[in-house]
Simulated assay, not measured.
Amino acid sequence: METADAILDALKQVIPGLAATFGRSCEIVLHDYRRGEQSVVAVAGQVTGRRIGGVTSEIGLRMLAQGDDAHDDLNYVTRTNSGRTVKSSTLPLRDAGGRVFGALCVNLDVTALRQVADLLGDLAGVAPAAPPTTTFTDDFDEVLEAVIRAEELALAKPVDSLTRQERLPLLRALDERGLFTVRGAAPRVAARLGISRASLYTDLAACRTDGQKP
């Protein structure tokens, strides 16, 4: 029976060769979600600047929110904070019992290809669509802020000024985006929203109860 540790150890041996096969534009990142904030356990290549001991991105949080129902997320395109265009695939890792415990992420820097596509689009009179920005960082607080800030922009209102009724949909959205799957996230969210931990846990429980209603 393959254990999670055995699977991770095997992958650590092969990802340098896989990254080298695709060249300097490829990066492969191995995540162990059991490690909480420090989920990155191996990196080969340099595209997003990931390092061992780093945190998952918003994409990883979304996969964590799916739990054991997570599925392969293939060929999605995002943009780093530095402006590089990255095509990625995230593959959940399962132990022998079918439980998701980590992920293998492949990132390809397609900035140059995107620039060519944009040029052709300009010539054809087609406006290129801008890919969403993903926060690749070693600091979980930066990921947390990016997730909350995205919801704050959608609300067009500071999150620390929301009434309880306005706050409940926000917490539901943050929960669905997997923010609370990381240990220690709740107190940080409470501080960002300007409420007590007790209030946050009460409101979050209410959101989850409402979400179970038919």
Results as ranks from 00 to 15, higher is better:
138 D>L: 03
122 D>G: 12
163 T>E: 14
94 R>H: 14
155 L>G: 08
155 L>H: 05
170 L>P: 03
123 L>H: 09
90 T>F: 05
144 L>I: 00
155 L>T: 09
112 A>Q: 14
138 D>I: 07
98 G>E: 13
126 V>E: 12
169 P>R: 13
84 R>S: 11
62 R>Q: 07
89 S>Q: 03
139 D>P: 02
64 L>S: 00
71 H>N: 09
151 E>F: 06
126 V>D: 06
78 T>H: 13
117 A>D: 07
78 T>I: 11
174 L>C: 05
172 R>I: 08
138 D>A: 15
87 K>P: 01
173 A>F: 02
153 L>T: 14
127 A>F: 01
86 V>D: 03
93 L>M: 08
167 R>N: 11
97 G>H: 15
64 L>T: 00
152 E>H: 06
98 G>I: 09
91 L>T: 15
175 D>E: 15
83 G>Y: 03
154 A>K: 09
143 V>H: 02
163 T>L: 13
137 T>R: 02
54 G>V: 04
56 T>D: 05
162 L>D: 09
105 C>F: 01
138 D>S: 15
169 P>G: 10
124 A>C: 09
85 T>Q: 10
145 E>H: 08
137 T>C: 01
88 S>Y: 02
134 T>S: 07
72 D>I: 14
144 L>H: 00
172 R>D: 15
58 E>T: 04
109 D>S: 12
129 A>R: 12
56 T>L: 11
157 K>G: 03
112 A>N: 07
141 D>G: 11
174 L>W: 00
115 Q>Y: 03
168 L>A: 13
134 T>K: 00
167 R>I: 10
92 P>H: 08
100 V>C: 12
62 R>Y: 00
147 V>T: 05
150 A>D: 12
104 L>N: 04
145 E>D: 09
98 G>S: 10
99 R>P: 04
57 S>M: 01
67 G>T: 04
125 G>M: 05
162 L>V: 11
159 V>S: 05
167 R>Q: 15
165 Q>W: 12
117 A>H: 07
117 A>I: 06
70 A>P: 06
104 L>P: 07
99 R>I: 12
64 L>Q: 07
120 L>P: 01
135 T>S: 01
153 L>D: 13
144 L>N: 00
134 T>A: 14
160 D>R: 12
167 R>L: 15
136 F>E: 00
118 D>G: 01
103 A>F: 00
139 D>W: 03
150 A>E: 08
148 I>C: 13
156 A>S: 15
164 R>D: 15
100 V>N: 01
68 D>Q: 06
